[in-house]
Design a protein around this nucleic acid. Structure first.
Length: 207
DNA sequence: AGGATGATATCC
DNA sequence: GATATCATCCTC
């Protein structure tokens, strides 16, 4: 069963002919993820994260992300090399890399670029769109509200129950950038502006 | 500023 | 086996 009733339909002017597919969820294809990580990170802003679980479709708009650029990026988990934990991050693009952090929270990344590179984009905040209970500002709260956890480690984002979609939205008017959060140990890599967010959106985790 | 809370990496 | 660290969040 496909439920799309939770998506706010854009009001069409009376008498206009709606363009086909304008409000439909268009799942992002594999080749969306198989590109430069910074490009993917920026283009993920405004897209919809969709999780269908137990007959409920939970949807949030991505408003904040961070790019992790591979094994040479000292802030990236993949800089530790290929381990059981980082296996998914070194895998092919378009899969979820979910990790458990600080004994309490899960964080979700999408793997980017070619298999073996260890690149990913961390999803840091969502604007609630459908069926999201609780807060979604911050990577740990985001997964909690979306009911995403360790079971989704390595999950294919071209599956029908967990994926990212475009709804024909226009690109964000402005994108702000800053240092990544919580990676001060990473030396020069900590200072690079690899966090991207929608500057006017109230669901961004920090100002 | 500091605590909760547990997996992971990196030592011995 | 022990310990230090951690891509967080909350309370004080």
């Amino acid at each position: 069963m496909v439920r799309t009733s939770g998506i706010p339909a854009r009001a069409a002017p009376a008498g206009s002919v709606p363009r086909p597919g304008r409000c439909a969820l268009a799942k992002l294809p594999r080749n969306f993820y198989d590109r430069n990580t910074v490009v993917v990170a920026k283009e993920l802003l405004g897209k919809l994260l969709v999780h269908r679980v137990a007959g409920v479709e939970r949807i949030g708009k991505i408003v904040e992300v961070e790019a992790y650029l591979g094994a040479h990026d000292k802030a990236a988990h993949s800089s530790k090399g290929l381990t059981p934990r980082t296996r998914a991050m070194f895998g092919p693009p378009g899969y979820a890399y979910v990790y458990f952090i600080y004994g309490r929270y899960h964080c979700m990344n999408v793997v980017t670029e070619r298999e073996g590179k260890g690149c990913a984009v961390l999803l840091r905040a969502l604007e609630p769109v459908a069926n999201l209970a609780g807060r979604t500002r911050g990577p740990g709260l985001l997964t909690q509200a979306m009911q995403i956890d360790g079971r989704h480690y390595g999950h294919d984002l071209l599956s029908d129950d967990l994926f990212i979609a475009s709804q024909g939205e226009s690109p964000p008017r402005r994108i702000a950038r800053s240092r990544r959060i919580g990676v001060d140990y990473a030396g020069a890599w900590a200072r690079r502006h690899l966090r991207f967010y929608l500057p006017d959106n109230p669901f961004v985790s920090r100002r």
